[in-house]
Design a protein around this nucleic acid. Structure first.
Lengths: 112, 112
DNA sequence: CCGCATCCTCTTCGATACTG
DNA sequence: CAGTATCGAAGAGGATGCGG
């Protein structure tokens, strides 16, 4: 673990965001707090298993807050923590970078 | 592919950076152009296969430039493209975010 | 309604051996 | 020196069924 990349804060941010569904959940929760079922509707392609797993990981990383209401039927509301929202805010530069340089990459792949 | 996350430039940047070795190669090449063997020395844990594969992907994404010198023994030099360097520059905010919020996450995992 | 358990598949990655 | 080929292990992710 003496690699310089391991010490880089960017590497840590990438680890929290990599995976098939992290960005989808992050984007959805950025528009407001959501219940489990509502998230499933918003991300139709995701399975229950992966949604639960993704939310757990993001909760452990401190990106997502999980609030349980003890009632029947069960009710759980997910929302972004301050850490989650700050992550999005700090990603603005990189987001614009992707929008600016995204297209050429697809062309390279299509040509190759 | 109608997910909002798929259209986000950040998602594209993440895809280019995710994977076990992308950050290591990016950080190393950020310090200057390197030959294949030199990169292996700098990242001891990586295998030849994974280094070659990682470099290929980054080349396809337009992050890395691969320059071949037709001589014996073979000589290939890798360097960051302007796109690659701009990616690093635009990641500064996120990097600081990771340094700031990184430690608490490890504590959460250790506690859980 | 929320989410875990199981089983299965596909991709990723590591180890080893081989080529120009 | 700079890769490619092949094999096998490990993990991610999908489908389905069950429990609180």
């Amino acid at each position: 673990m003496t690699d310089p990349a391991a010490e880089c804060g960017l590497a840590m941010a990438i680890r929290m965001l990599e995976g098939k569904w992290k960005m989808d959940v992050l984007c959805e929760l950025d528009t407001g707090a959501r219940r489990f079922g509502r998230l499933r509707q918003a991300i139709p392609a995701i399975s229950e298993k992966m949604l639960a797993q993704t939310l757990r990981e993001m909760e452990v990383d401190g990106l997502v807050l999980r609030k349980v209401y003890d009632q029947l039927p069960a009710k759980v509301v997910y929302s972004l923590t301050e850490r989650g929202t700050s992550l999005i805010a700090r990603s603005a530069d990189l987001c614009r970078w992707g929008e600016q340089f995204g297209a050429p990459a697809a062309q390279l792949q299509a040509a190759g």
